[in-house]
Design a protein around this nucleic acid. Sequence first.
RNA 1: GUGGGCGUAGCUCAACCGGCAGAGCGCUGGAUUGUGGUUCCAGUGGUUGGGGGUUCAAGUCCCCUCGCCCACCCCA
Length: 419
Amino acid sequence: MSAPRSVKGMRDLLPPETAVWAAVEATARRVFSLYGFEEIRTPIVEETELFMRSVGESTDIVGKEMYTFEDKGGRSLTLRPESTAPVARAFVEHNLREQGLPLRLFYIGPQFRYERPQRGRYRQFHQIGAEVFGDPGPLSDVELLQMLLRFLDELGFEDLVVRLNTVGDRASRSAYAQSLREFLAPRAAELGEDSRRRLETNPLRILDTKLPRERRVLEDAPRLEEHLSDESREHFEMIVRMLAERGIEHQVDPGLVRGLDYYTRTVFEIASAELGAQDAILGGGRYDGLVADLGGPEVPALGFAIGEDRLIEVLPASNASRFVPAAPATVIAVGGVAPEDALRLAEELRGSGLAAVAELGAGAMKGALKRAGRRGSRYVLLLGDDELSSGAVTVKDFESGRQELMDRERVAGYLEERR
RNA sequence: GUGGGCGUAGCUCAACCGGCAGAGCGCUGGAUUGUGGUUCCAGUGGUUGGGGGUUCAAGUCCCCUCGCCCACCCCA
């Protein structure tokens, strides 16, 4: 009988890396709150119907990547493959419009897609996302990007590429889809199997093909730009102009088409050159029709989702190590003569906000010192016969190699000064 | 879902044409009974991912299977 293993595509996050995750999430909470975002937590399990109506039945996510199952009551449920739809569902369900618009929400949590695992792609992955409800103007698109860039800047990222495009509003989009279909239909023989299928289901998705042969066919294809409504065009031009005015570097990429049906107008992604084929560490855009599609009021919205796993994979190493918290001081009951005093001293330090680990085991002071070194303790506090009789503590500084005897009451202050 | 690469000690890896499974790091102990790390010495390390087959003999060759990695695909 072999030992149970973790499920394919799902992984354990272990220390010390978990400290980096916690720090990234704390940074997100802090930066997002600077912009007035508040946290929302939605269930991991949703009705399957939610994703079919929002993400879209023709998308690969809904078509073949969802963890869908039937519960004991016969309901079709799905582990969320993304969180924009659940957040929009919650917005409608709780009439959050009544909280006053615009409403800014963020979330952090696991998502599930049944895909072949690869670098930066797992079946359980984690997203940090944000959504803004109720602001139709291009300024909120720009502000959202600014917030993202501030967040990434605080994590130490430098050479990231912002790619930007517009897919137009619903009307522009369906007009363009029709014209693209008419252009490509006679050339279907030159398209691959996937693209031929998309010709029916989702012609815009053909635009971001990587096949050189298909790229050549697309060179002469009608352009989305030609079908944009004046309103959509102005919206996008405003964004591009404001980004330029603010010195925010970006590339307009007409081939950028997000895979989820609910996007309208602005779409964007930020990529890292350090990742392989899965180079986008975040993506987002506007989805002005989603809330209404889910039975809510006509409320425009936009948002993004950061792939936390990918983000951490390419986090600049110097910053990753910065996030690991300071090692605790180690209190050693020398020779096992004073375990209760060691425990009490450690507890006193914690009361002063200092991290401390007590080594209470009998004997083997050497082993205790070794463990202190391994956990990175700089200060070791020794309590033995000598100290007990005089009410003192020996404080050893691993860095200087020196140690001194001091009164117990002084220890916390001494460590605090040197923190 | 498709194609390719790789699975050997806790970790990183070696082992010729099929011929006694190894090294470094780690871990444990000692040198040093109340002083870590550094140094020296000793020790601990394995159903070679799993199953089947070929062979006198399999880590090595063949088949199946599981896992990891890469690309396609998809997307964050």
